[in-house]
Protein backbone atom coordinates (compact mmCIF):
# COMPACT_ATOMS: atom_id res chain seq x y z
CA UNK A 1 0.00 0.00 0.00
CA UNK A 2 1.05 3.62 -0.41
CA UNK A 3 3.71 4.68 2.06
CA UNK A 4 4.87 1.12 2.66
CA UNK A 5 8.58 0.84 3.02
CA UNK A 6 10.85 -2.20 2.87
CA UNK A 7 13.15 -2.15 5.86
CA UNK A 8 16.32 -4.17 5.46
CA UNK A 9 17.85 -5.85 8.49
CA UNK A 10 20.56 -7.95 6.94
CA UNK A 11 18.84 -10.99 5.42
CA UNK A 12 15.57 -9.98 7.05
CA UNK A 13 13.34 -7.74 4.91
CA UNK A 14 10.17 -6.35 6.36
CA UNK A 15 7.58 -4.16 4.70
CA UNK A 16 6.17 -1.50 7.00
CA UNK A 17 3.53 1.21 6.60
CA UNK A 18 5.92 3.91 7.81
CA UNK A 19 4.06 6.89 6.36
CA UNK A 20 0.80 5.73 7.95
CA UNK A 21 2.44 5.25 11.35
CA UNK A 22 4.23 8.58 11.10
CA UNK A 23 1.02 10.39 10.16
CA UNK A 24 -0.86 8.72 13.00
CA UNK A 25 1.79 9.63 15.54
CA UNK A 26 2.18 13.19 14.29
CA UNK A 27 -1.55 13.69 14.80
CA UNK A 28 -1.35 12.80 18.51
CA UNK A 29 2.27 13.67 19.33
CA UNK A 30 1.59 16.96 21.14
CA UNK A 31 -1.29 15.40 23.10
CA UNK A 32 0.71 12.37 24.20
CA UNK A 33 3.96 14.20 24.97
CA UNK A 34 2.05 16.79 27.01
CA UNK A 35 1.00 13.94 29.33
CA UNK A 36 4.65 13.17 30.05
CA UNK A 37 6.09 15.70 32.49
CA UNK A 38 9.24 13.74 33.30
CA UNK A 39 12.12 15.35 31.44
CA UNK A 40 14.96 13.70 33.27
CA UNK A 41 14.44 10.24 31.79
CA UNK A 42 14.04 8.87 28.32
CA UNK A 43 12.99 5.27 27.82
CA UNK A 44 14.75 4.84 24.47
CA UNK A 45 17.53 7.43 24.52
CA UNK A 46 18.91 7.12 28.06
CA UNK A 47 21.81 6.90 28.65
CA UNK A 48 22.71 6.33 25.02
CA UNK A 49 20.77 7.17 21.91
CA UNK A 50 19.45 4.33 19.79
CA UNK A 51 21.54 5.83 17.03
CA UNK A 52 24.67 4.51 18.73
CA UNK A 53 23.53 0.88 18.30
CA UNK A 54 25.70 -1.31 16.08
CA UNK A 55 24.12 -1.99 12.69
CA UNK A 56 24.58 -5.75 13.12
CA UNK A 57 22.30 -5.58 16.13
CA UNK A 58 19.59 -3.51 14.47
CA UNK A 59 17.31 -6.40 13.63
CA UNK A 60 17.37 -7.83 17.13
CA UNK A 61 16.81 -4.46 18.80
CA UNK A 62 13.94 -3.71 16.42
CA UNK A 63 12.41 -7.10 17.15
CA UNK A 64 12.71 -6.51 20.89
CA UNK A 65 11.25 -3.01 20.57
CA UNK A 66 8.23 -4.12 18.58
CA UNK A 67 7.51 -6.79 21.18
CA UNK A 68 8.00 -4.13 23.87
CA UNK A 69 5.56 -1.68 22.29
CA UNK A 70 2.92 -4.33 21.62
CA UNK A 71 3.21 -6.07 24.98
CA UNK A 72 4.05 -3.19 27.36
CA UNK A 73 3.07 0.10 25.81
CA UNK A 74 -0.05 0.35 23.64
CA UNK A 75 -2.31 -1.57 26.00
CA UNK A 76 -1.51 0.88 28.83
CA UNK A 77 -2.14 4.02 26.81
CA UNK A 78 -5.88 4.47 26.92
CA UNK A 79 -6.92 8.12 27.14
CA UNK A 80 -10.17 9.98 27.63
CA UNK A 81 -9.95 11.15 24.02
CA UNK A 82 -11.52 8.74 21.52
CA UNK A 83 -9.70 10.33 18.59
CA UNK A 84 -6.34 9.77 20.29
CA UNK A 85 -7.36 6.22 21.21
CA UNK A 86 -8.24 5.44 17.60
CA UNK A 87 -4.87 6.69 16.39
CA UNK A 88 -3.09 4.64 19.06
CA UNK A 89 -4.89 1.46 18.09
CA UNK A 90 -4.14 2.05 14.41
CA UNK A 91 -0.44 2.38 15.22
CA UNK A 92 -0.67 -0.67 17.48
CA UNK A 93 -2.14 -2.74 14.64
CA UNK A 94 0.73 -1.77 12.36
CA UNK A 95 3.19 -2.72 15.08
CA UNK A 96 1.43 -6.04 15.62
CA UNK A 97 1.88 -7.07 12.01
CA UNK A 98 5.49 -5.91 12.10
CA UNK A 99 6.06 -7.88 15.28
CA UNK A 100 4.88 -11.05 13.52
CA UNK A 101 7.08 -10.45 10.49
CA UNK A 102 10.14 -9.80 12.63
CA UNK A 103 9.25 -12.88 14.67
CA UNK A 104 9.46 -14.96 11.52
CA UNK A 105 12.91 -13.53 10.76
CA UNK A 106 13.92 -14.36 14.33
CA UNK A 107 12.74 -17.94 13.96
CA UNK A 108 14.69 -18.27 10.71
CA UNK A 109 17.82 -17.03 12.50
CA UNK A 110 17.94 -13.89 10.38
CA UNK A 111 17.68 -11.66 13.43
CA UNK A 112 20.52 -12.69 15.67
CA UNK A 113 20.90 -11.01 19.07
CA UNK A 114 24.38 -9.89 20.05
CA UNK A 115 25.49 -8.70 23.44
CA UNK A 116 25.01 -5.05 22.59
CA UNK A 117 21.35 -5.40 21.66
CA UNK A 118 20.71 -7.49 24.75
CA UNK A 119 22.36 -4.87 26.96
CA UNK A 120 20.57 -2.02 25.21
CA UNK A 121 17.18 -3.66 25.58
CA UNK A 122 17.87 -4.42 29.25
CA UNK A 123 18.52 -0.69 29.72
CA UNK A 124 15.24 0.18 27.98
CA UNK A 125 13.33 -2.17 30.28
CA UNK A 126 15.14 -0.73 33.30
CA UNK A 127 14.14 2.78 32.25
CA UNK A 128 10.56 1.58 31.76
CA UNK A 129 10.43 -0.04 35.19
CA UNK A 130 11.60 3.15 36.91
CA UNK A 131 8.12 4.59 36.40
CA UNK A 132 4.63 3.36 37.12
CA UNK A 133 3.16 1.44 34.20
CA UNK A 134 0.90 4.18 32.86
CA UNK A 135 3.60 6.87 33.00
CA UNK A 136 6.16 4.53 31.48
CA UNK A 137 3.80 3.46 28.70
CA UNK A 138 2.75 7.04 27.89
CA UNK A 139 6.40 8.17 27.87
CA UNK A 140 7.32 5.28 25.56
CA UNK A 141 4.49 6.19 23.21
CA UNK A 142 5.63 9.81 23.23
CA UNK A 143 9.05 8.62 22.11
CA UNK A 144 7.75 6.81 19.05
CA UNK A 145 9.35 9.39 16.77
CA UNK A 146 12.72 8.56 18.29
CA UNK A 147 12.16 4.92 17.29
CA UNK A 148 10.89 5.81 13.81
CA UNK A 149 13.72 8.29 13.18
CA UNK A 150 16.22 5.62 14.16
CA UNK A 151 14.58 2.89 12.10
CA UNK A 152 14.52 5.01 8.98
Amino acid sequence: TAGNKILHFGACRVSMSMAEIRAGFTAIKANIQARDSIRTLSILSYPHSLHKVNSSDRCCITHHLFNFYVDKVFKHCRTEDSYVNRKISSIANSFLSMKRKLGQCHEQNQCVCGQESTEKFKQILANYEELNVTSAAMKSLGELDILLDWME
Binding site: I38, R39, T40, L41, S42, S45, Y46
Partner: peptide, 8 residues
Protein backbone atom coordinates in the same frame (compact mmCIF):
# COMPACT_ATOMS: atom_id res chain seq x y z
CA UNK B 1 16.81 24.84 27.50
CA UNK B 2 17.15 21.14 28.25
CA UNK B 3 17.88 17.93 26.39
CA UNK B 4 15.01 15.48 26.67
CA UNK B 5 16.00 12.49 28.82
CA UNK B 6 18.72 14.48 30.58
CA UNK B 7 16.37 17.10 31.89
CA UNK B 8 18.97 19.48 33.42
Amino acid sequence: YSVYGVGK
